[in-house]
Design a protein around this nucleic acid. Sequence first.
DNA 1: CCTGTTATTGATAATGATTGTCAAAACCAT
DNA 2: ATGGTTTTGACAATCATTATCAATAACAGG
Lengths: 134, 134
Amino acid sequence: MKRNTWQREAVREALDETEGFISAQALHSSLHASGSPIGLATVYRALGDLAATGEADSLQSPEGEALYRACTTTGHHHHLICRNCGLTVEIAADEVEVWAKRVAADHGFTGAAHVVDVFGLCANCTRLLTANAG
Amino acid sequence: MKRNTWQREAVREALDETEGFISAQALHSSLHASGSPIGLATVYRALGDLAATGEADSLQSPEGEALYRACTTTGHHHHLICRNCGLTVEIAADEVEVWAKRVAADHGFTGAAHVVDVFGLCANCTRLLTANAG
DNA sequence: CCTGTTATTGATAATGATTGTCAAAACCAT
DNA sequence: ATGGTTTTGACAATCATTATCAATAACAGG
Ligand SMILES: [Zn+2]
Ligand SMILES: [Zn+2]
Ligand SMILES: [Zn+2]
Ligand SMILES: [Zn+2]
């Protein structure tokens, strides 16, 4: 049976309070900084569970680290992520869903899944960085 | 100055002969099996260089491992990958390019890049696995 | 409220990919 | 062929993640 522990709840809350994606290590550090004695392995386990049940979304950073985020949307969706500040926008992409299905079908592929993420600079970061550079 | 060594050439050729994506470790094993005494670190370096110059394409496997492939198309493109046999199809996706740009622009993002990969079972693998399962 | 069963925790070791180190070897213009 | 410079490769180091396993805590039943 699945038991409720303060550790799982702590991870869930910490993830909720986090803007954008965060790594297991970083979330653990954050929790420790807040005085929580939660163990690192437990954070990994909790994040894995949340991702498995769909309560959190995960993706691989370009550096190969797994990043997690508490999703507000329950269904299938994608992300538009600021590579500077981490701000993340959840986006529906019916257009891409259709495209992905068609591409797979056209080539005889079945059971198609896809990875679609857009990275860029959010308006805020664009303004700041442009001011400095220009 | 950039020098030419048999090691770099060996990696390039091994990558060319490989169908689908392959990891640095696997390529190193493959080279060793063929009698090449090339070092592991060198394979990592060569693959990194090839990816940097655009001669090879790289992506992160769901397990976080970096995979490489010799690309036949020079420009920007995406992949349709068989999760069973590794067969890879390069696909152009003007539709998705437009979509990605629009999504970024709609939200005020600039300098948008994107990761778009489709994973599935190729026709061949579908037939084989369906025969076994059904 | 106790209590036993059993899932969960967490310190730590183990794993596995990738990168850093640095002396020795290879490359190439001269 | 020679020398300055780049590249190599064996090995150590790093870093994220997973496995271990005894100790702990959740919770159903009494
Ligand atoms: Zn930003
Ligand atoms: Zn989708
Ligand atoms: Zn296949
Ligand atoms: Zn594209």
